[in-house]
């Protein structure tokens, strides 16, 4: 619980830090991408704190390349 509060405080600090900067930029896309990415980051961190299983991108790498490693690389060399 404390970790989550800490994390939210840190995020608030980040928002505060970037706010003045973002205000000067007219482009709405800048604000949106910042907000969305920060939201995703927060969500992932909180999920990780509560041990919610996330997707590990290395599993995708393993899924694709394991057959290639075993059937091609190990055969050829």
């Amino acid at each position: 619980m404390w970790k989550v509060i800490g994390l939210l405080l840190v995020s608030a600090a980040i928002v505060q830090f970037e706010y003045s900067h973002l205000k000067k930029i007219r482009n709405r896309m800048d604000r949106w991408s910042f907000a969305v990415l920060l939201g995703v980051g927060l969500m992932l961190s909180i999920m990780k704190m509560y041990d919610v299983p996330l997707f590990n991108p290395l599993q995708a790498i393993e899924f694709i390349y394991k057959p290639i490693y075993e059937n091609v690389f190990n055969r050829v060399l």
Partner: peptide, 20 residues
Amino acid sequence: LRLQDYRPLTFPLGIIAIVL
């Protein structure tokens, strides 16, 4: 994303990188 500055992305992406 055709943004005007990449700096605001650093902290959010940093957080995601740490979780990753």
